[in-house]
Amino acid sequence: MIPIKKQYRRLRSLLFALSSVIMFFIFWELIALYSPSPYVPDPYSVLKAFITMLTVGDIDGYTLTWHALVSLERVLLGFIVGAATGVPIGMLLGIKPTLKGAVTPIIEPLRFIPPIAWIPLSIVLLIGLWRYIFLIWIGVFFPVLLDTIAGVKRTSITLIQMAKTFGADNKKIIARVIFPSSLPEIMNGLRVGLGVGWMCIVAAEMIGGEPVGLGRLILKYANLLQIDVVIVGMITIGLIGLTLNYFILLLEKRLFKWRVEIRA
C-alpha cells in the first residue's frame, strides 16, 4: 500500500497539473475572444475541426490518421538513415581524435544550418521520398553524432586496458567495451534526434508535391486561412512527438537497468 503522505503528494501534483491545463484553455479562450483578428479559433472550434479531420478528412479526403501515418513513415525512414550514419561515424570520430579534428571545421558550421534552409538544395539534388529523408536526416544526424562522440570519449581507460590484458584486439575492444559503455549516450542522442527529426516534418513537407502529411495539412489550411485545422495539425505533431519520446525513455529504462542508481 502507498503511504498516505505519498498519496497526498501525488493527488496534489495531479491537481496542479490539471489546473494548469484548465488555465491554459481559459487563456486561449480569452485570446480568441479579444483578439482583433477574426482568424483566431477558440478551443471549441479546434475540437470540432479535430473530430471532422479524424472522421471525414480534409478537403482532399485524407483523414488525420492517414496524414499522421504518412508523416511518421517519412520521419522514421529519415531517423533510420540518421541513426545508421550518426552512430558509426560518431564511433569512428570518437575513437580517432585526429580524424575528428580534421572534420570538425566542416561539421560544426553545418550543424547550425536549419533544415528549412536545405529545402532548395534538396529539391535540386534529390527526388521523391529521398527529399523528405534528407531533410529529416539533417535533424537526426547531428544530435546522434555528437552524443555518440561524447559517449565514446567517456569510456573508462581502465576498462579498455583491462580488455587489452585479456588479449582483446581493437575490434573486440570497440564491440565489447566502447560501444556498450557509450550506449546510454547513444540512446540519448537517438531520442533527441528522433524528436528533432519529428520537428523537421513541417519543413520537410514544405517541399510540396503530394497532398498528405501533417506538415502538408498545416500548410494547406494555412493557405485557406482555416487556422482551426492548422492548430489540429500542430497539436497532433506535439502529441505524437511526446509519445515517441516516451517510448524511447521506456526502452532506455529497460536497457539500462545497470544504471538505475545513477538516474534516480
Partner: peptide, 17 residues
C-alpha cells in the same frame, strides 16, 4: 594475445553493464 595475464587493476575495472 600470446600469454595469459590475470591483471587486477588498482581502480575499479568491472564492466558496469
Amino acid at each position: 594475445r600470446k600469454q595469459r595475464f590475470g591483471v587486477i587493476f588498482q581502480e575499479d575495472s568491472l564492466l558496469p553493464w
